[in-house]
């Protein structure tokens, strides 16, 4: 199933570690600012907009997860 992961900045190292131990070292994902739980709606909407663009790029590009490479 096509998918795109989104991590906050603080969890980038965790995501990279999990990708490595699961055998997908260069698995790409979108990154947004941390934290999200205390962000107001406008801030969250702006982050979501950027993340949506990044996710679209990940899903449609040849470098995206599961892409033809």
């Amino acid at each position: 199933m096509p998918s795109a992961g989104i991590m906050t900045e603080t969890f980038v190292s965790a995501a990279e570690l999990m990708a490595r131990v699961l055998g997908a070292e260069d698995y790409p994902f979108a990154v947004i600012e941390h934290p999200i739980s205390s962000a107001d709606r406008a801030t969250l909407a702006a982050r979501a907009e950027r993340a949506a663009a990044d996710c679209a790029r990940l899903l449609l590009s040849r470098e995206g997860p599961g892409g033809p490479g």
Binding site: F11, S13, A14, L17, M18, V21
Partner: peptide
């Protein structure tokens, strides 16, 4: 399981 502080253990 790599459950070290800052690795899997967050």
């Amino acid at each position: 399981m790599d459950v070290r502080p800052g690795a899997i253990d967050r």
